[in-house]
Simulated scan of single mutants.
Amino acid sequence: MATTLRIASWNINSVRARIDIVERFLRDEGPDILCLQETKVADPQFPEGPFRQLGYNHIVINGQPMHHGVAIISKVSLANKQVHDWQANGEARHVGVEIAGGVRLENVYVPAGGDIPDREQNVKFGQKLDFLARMTDWSGAVSVPTILTGDFNVAPLETDVWSHKQLVNVVSHTAIEIEALGGLQSAGNWIDLAREFVPPEKKLYTWWSYRAQDWETSDRGRRLDHMWVTPDLKDKAHAHVVHKPCRGWGKPSDHVPIVTEFRL
């Protein structure tokens, strides 16, 4: 009998600073698993208590003080933790586990890449491209059913940004980043689940800048957060939702949660 699992992903931009809205989301939506990025906390200081009080007793973390950090919070058992250093410098940007049916769940926080889309002028941009290249090498060797989710920091389609024309040379939507992400996707024949449920010609965003005076009215968003699966899991996904209202909550992240329902 298939098990229904609802898996959420959210760049929370400091889990301790925004624990109130994380708790609100978990109470309102009750996903079985929550993948967090940019937790910004060392492992010993991770706020496990609020999650356990809500029934999320399985917690796998890979954090560091003040920067980066990822976590998987779950109501169901998690096994076989793995961590990849795709940044090649020890930054906490990935954690993966095994969930129901031997499926791997990989949670990743791809570097933003700075402001200048040129690796010669901007070291951070080069690090981002190299990160994606290492992920591509890994992807080619994936041999089990796998869910890959997180903040990829790339909006690949023209409809993934509010204005392709104005953002074509802006980091997160440049041709070189889109090509790198496409190479990663091709290496594992990954399925971009959001675009299975929302047609590619339709605008879809998961991030709105803090700089916008009225983010909702201007709606200048980008789709930076993704949920991908290997082809053997495509038909196991039955719904995908972007929780846009969370962007308007008190002290919000600039990202909103995405949730996919699976029957595994």
Rank of each mutant, 00 (worst) to 15 (best):
I12A: 04
A239I: 00
N122T: 09
H240T: 04
I73E: 11
R52Y: 11
L193S: 03
A133W: 05
W215L: 15
G49C: 00
V259C: 10
C246S: 12
V144K: 02
A71L: 07
V171N: 01
P231L: 06
S253E: 07
L224T: 03
S74L: 10
E201H: 11
W138V: 01
K75Q: 15
P65Q: 15
H94D: 13
W207L: 08
H84F: 15
M135A: 12
R222T: 01
I258S: 11
V229H: 10
G55D: 13
V161H: 05
D219I: 04
N62C: 13
M135C: 04
V22H: 00
V110H: 07
A194L: 11
V76R: 11
I7A: 07
T260R: 02
A8L: 00
T146Q: 08
D115A: 12
S77V: 10
D225F: 00
E38I: 10
A17F: 02
G30I: 06
S14A: 14
L54V: 05
E29P: 00
H173I: 05
S9Q: 02
A92Q: 02
E91G: 00
R263F: 06
T149K: 04
N153A: 04
W207K: 04
D43L: 07
V144M: 06
P199I: 10
Q185A: 14
N107A: 11
K75L: 12
D20W: 01
D118F: 13
H84G: 08
A92S: 09
D225G: 00
I59Y: 11
R24L: 10
N107W: 14
T217A: 15
A237S: 06
W162V: 03
K251N: 14
W86M: 15
L233S: 13
W207C: 03
E158I: 08
V110G: 06
H94P: 01
F25L: 10
R247H: 13
V22I: 03
S143K: 10
I59D: 13
Q64A: 11
L34C: 12
L181I: 14
K202A: 10
A141Y: 08
A187N: 03
R119C: 04
V60L: 09
H238A: 12
H226S: 04
P145Q: 12
V154C: 06
S14V: 05
N57I: 06
Q37K: 04
V144P: 01
H84A: 08
V161Y: 09
D192M: 08
P50H: 02
Q87M: 07
L36V: 15
L204M: 05
N80K: 13
K244Q: 14
K75T: 14
I73M: 10
R222A: 13
Q166Y: 14
V259L: 14
F125G: 00
R6E: 14
H255C: 04
I19D: 01
H67K: 13
W249F: 08
H84Y: 12
Q37L: 07
R222H: 10
R223T: 00
A194Q: 05
E91V: 06
T3P: 12
A88F: 09
R263W: 05
V241P: 02
G63N: 07
A212S: 12
I176Y: 06
E48L: 14
I33K: 03
M1G: 13
I191T: 15
W249A: 04
A187G: 11
D254H: 03
V83E: 06
F125S: 02
A79L: 11
G126I: 07
G49H: 03
R211S: 02
